[in-house]
Write a protein that binds this DNA or RNA. Structure first.
Lengths: 146, 146
DNA sequence: GGATATTAGTTGTTTTTGTAACTAACAAGG
DNA sequence: CCTTGTTAGTTACAAAAACAACTAATATCC
C-alpha cells in the first residue's frame, strides 16, 4: 500500500512479545483459573510467597513490579481463600508479613508442578541453547538482574 | 522455605514473557498514547491497515488474534478520529472494508518511525544473531508462521 | 422458496485494571 | 512534643477488558 520501508509489524518486538506472552499465558491460565479461581496477579503473589518465602506486600511489589493496589486486592482474595495469612510487623505496624497457609502451600506446589510441566513443554520446541538465549534476553528486557 | 525443586519463578517462561512484554509496551505506549490518544488495540489496528493495506475487521481479528468486540470499538474510535474510513462490501453487505485516510496514513507513518527507532534501540543491547533467534522464537510462541 | 444455521459486526453488562485520594503508622527537625 | 514529610497498605471512582446477547446479512439444505 506504500513504500514498505524496512518495517514489518510482525517483527516489531513489543508486538511480538505481547503476542507470545498472551499466547503462553492463555495456556497456563487454565490451571490457576479453573482449578483455583485465581487471577494472574493472585498466582504471581502465591508464587512469590511459595518461591521466596514470607515477605511483605511491598516486597512482592518491588520484586514483581506489580502496583500496590493490585497486590492489595490479590492478597485480600488469597486471604479470603485461606491461602495466605497476614501478620503485623511489631516493630513497624504499617507493614504486614504474608505467608502461605498449608492450603496455600499445597496450591502452590500443585501449580508449580503444572508450571514446570508447561515450561518444559514449551522448551521442547527449541534447542537448549536457544532456550538459554531466550531466557537471558527476556530477563534483560524485563529488567531483571541476570 | 521448602525443597526448592528445580523451579525458579524468574525462569518461568510465561512469567518472563509477560514481564518483558509489559516493560516493552510501556516504553512504546507513550508514543501512541500521548501523541494520538490511542489505546493499544487502536494502534494495532492502525498498524495492520498501514502495514498490509485495506482489510476488514474480521481479517484484522484473525491476523492479530484480537477479539471482534475490541476491534469494533477500536475501529469506532479510529473512525471518530478520522483515521480510517469504512466502506460496505457490495457483494456481502455485512462486511466493511477499512482503510486509512490521509490523516491515518500520516499517523501510521509517524508512529512507524518511532516504532522502528524503539525496536532498534532494544536490539542494540544484543548481538544480531541473538535478536534473530529471539524473533524466531517469539514468532513461534505467538503462533505466527515463520 | 422458506426454515435453520452461520457469519460480520455491534451493543450491553459484568470484571478487572488504572489512578488518585485516603488512613494509619512512623520519621525528622525544630 | 508537635508540625511536616514519608511510607505501607486500603478504598473509591473512572477507564478498559471480557463475555454474553443481540442485529442484520448471507448461506445451507430440505
Amino acid at each position: 500500500m506504500d513504500e514498505k520501508d524496512d518495517f514489518a509489524l510482525q517483527d516489531f518486538l513489543p508486538y511480538l512479545l505481547n503476542r507470545a506472552a498472551e499466547e503462553s499465558s492463555l495456556g497456563f491460565q487454565k490451571h490457576y483459573k479453573n482449578r483455583y479461581g485465581m487471577l494472574r496477579t493472585e498466582w504471581r503473589v502465591l508464587f512469590h510467597l511459595g518461591n521466596y518465602g514470607q515477605m511483605t506486600a511491598k516486597e512482592i511489589g518491588s520484586r514483581a513490579k506489580i502496583h500496590k493496589t493490585k497486590i492489595s486486592r490479590a492478597v485480600a482474595k488469597l486471604a479470603e481463600k485461606r491461602f495466605v495469612t497476614r501478620t503485623r510487623d511489631e516493630s513497624d505496624r504499617r507493614a504486614e508479613h504474608l505467608a502461605l497457609t498449608p492450603a496455600g502451600e499445597a496450591a502452590y506446589k500443585d501449580l508449580r508442578e503444572h508450571a514446570l510441566e508447561f515450561d518444559t513443554q514449551i522448551c521442547a520446541r527449541f534447542t537448549s541453547g536457544e532456550v538459554a538465549i531466550l531466557r537471558y534476553m527476556l530477563r534483560n528486557l524485563a529488567g531483571i538482574e541476570p
